[in-house]
Design a binder for these strands. Structure first.
Lengths: 241, 241
DNA sequence: CGTTGGTTTGATTAATGTCAACGCACGTGG
DNA sequence: CCACGTGCGTTGACATTAATCAAACCAACG
């Protein structure tokens, strides 16, 4: 049930004690409306934030005022686990949809990191985040607009499955085309046309904030998606909530 | 003298004992010619690799055969510190110039991570790597060609300074325009034209494998460079070898 | 029923890629 | 010492992708 535990078990099964510990972390839950900042660039938050429900993102605003989204944060993802070490955030975090966010005080984080299995799994998770960043870099540099979106959707499907939030080849995607544009480095207009192309190819449908992948195999092939950077072990992929 | 120690001290000064320990790591040095793979995607190297001299890079080859460079590895940078945890590399590492690479066996790495100050500094370094990846993402998504190159050069200057390899506002940059193209997601032709534009603006000169920044202030402004993502403390920036 | 936020469409423009050729410096072997 | 090859940088002409601007449309919601 706990999305964090589910995600960490993609790396390695946890003991019941560890699972219970993670459940115990979920005490201080805060509702965050859609499109509101959770942490701003330059801040140094006191508590660590964990997404329990909804979509959030890391982003930066460039000098000319354009926003770029650098990562999606799904249920089970930490926003700022590292913050204790650095003087300040070098980017911001904002909700995309309505979110439920857990705030965890530093001493509980320390307790968590003293549990070896959890600490290792969290380290794995940051390596996956880094791999994801690298793959997004490749996308921006080498894939054209529809390929970029297709690749993103392939990735999100696996990540949503990993936390039990996919239904078959589809999942809730509560974001706008403008947000996709800010993610893929495209204009909203071009995102729209690219989505139409993907639809026309019979690869997917995106409406009512839900993405339905109609032909997963072809979508993977079309976008050149290789899931190795997510470092999932096949056994732990899940297909249902 | 030890580039790794210099770099880690950008986070926090180290004890003499820690510095000595890091010096003791440099036993098994290997010469690597330019443009040769150090670690390939899919491998799982036994030893950890540390760059002591020269330029290397992380890269991926896309399905259609194009290469994308996702990070530069300078003296003092680890190639694959994390590798113990993951089953396999999700990207490759190759030298750009001739390099000197240290190979460190896993038990020495373990010893290293048992030294709290060093472990913390290494964790800081991986956070900086992640921040750098995010900034490159922003570059690809929002900056035009000459801005991208200018931004990259600003970053490299600070990184080279941090390990004592810059002379004033200039440093050795032993890479070709084609490699810059594979970094910035541009064609070599366009890199060439963009460099000419930067030169024409009197911002910099790049010849004989050396980059001379002629007007640092304007270059920073031109590229919208904000060094916060490198998390350097001013005090530790160095300007000479 | 009007307003609002998001999506869709068309026309035009700007940035960058591609292809092809040429030049230049350097190193090598005759 | 010269001739040649090779790798890299440079240039020009042209094609393509995606951005921009502006307007229309649509559905949800008060």
């Amino acid at each position: 049930m706990n999305r964090l535990a589910r995600k960490l078990e993609c790396f390695q099964p946890l003991s019941q004690a560890d699972r219970d510990f993670l459940d115990g972390l979920i005490t201080n839950v805060r509702e965050v409306p859609a499109r509101t900042d959770i942490i701003g660039e330059g801040e140094r938050p006191h508590d660590v934030h964990l997404i329990m429900d909804g979509f959030a993102c890391r982003y930066k605003i460039s000098a000319e005022g354009s926003r770029h989204i650098m990562a999606y944060l799904l249920p089970g993802d930490f926003c700022d686990l590292h913050v204790a070490l650095l003087k300040e955030m070098d980017h911001s975090i904002s909700s995309l949809s309505k979110c439920r966010v857990v705030e965890i005080p530093p001493n509980r984080i320390e307790d968590m990191l003293n549990r070896p299995a959890i600490a290792r799994a969290l380290y794995w998770a940051t390596l996956v985040d880094e791999g994801t960043l690298r793959e997004w870099l490749v996308t921006l540099a080498t894939r054209d607009a529809p390929e970029s979106l297709a690749h993103l959707f392939c990735e999100l499907l696996l990540r949503m499955r990993a936390v039990g939030l996919a239904q078959g080849d589809s999942f809730e995607l509560p974001i706008t085309q403008e947000e996709l544009a800010d993610t893929a480095g495209l204009s909203p207009v071009h995102v729209n046309r690219s989505l139409q192309a993907l639809r026309a190819h019979g690869l997917l449908e995106l409406k009512n904030k839900r993405l339905v992948i109609l032909d997963h195999r072809r979508l993977v092939e079309y976008s050149g998606f290789n899931p190795n950077y997510l470092h999932l072990t096949e056994a732990r992929e899940r297909t249902s909530a």
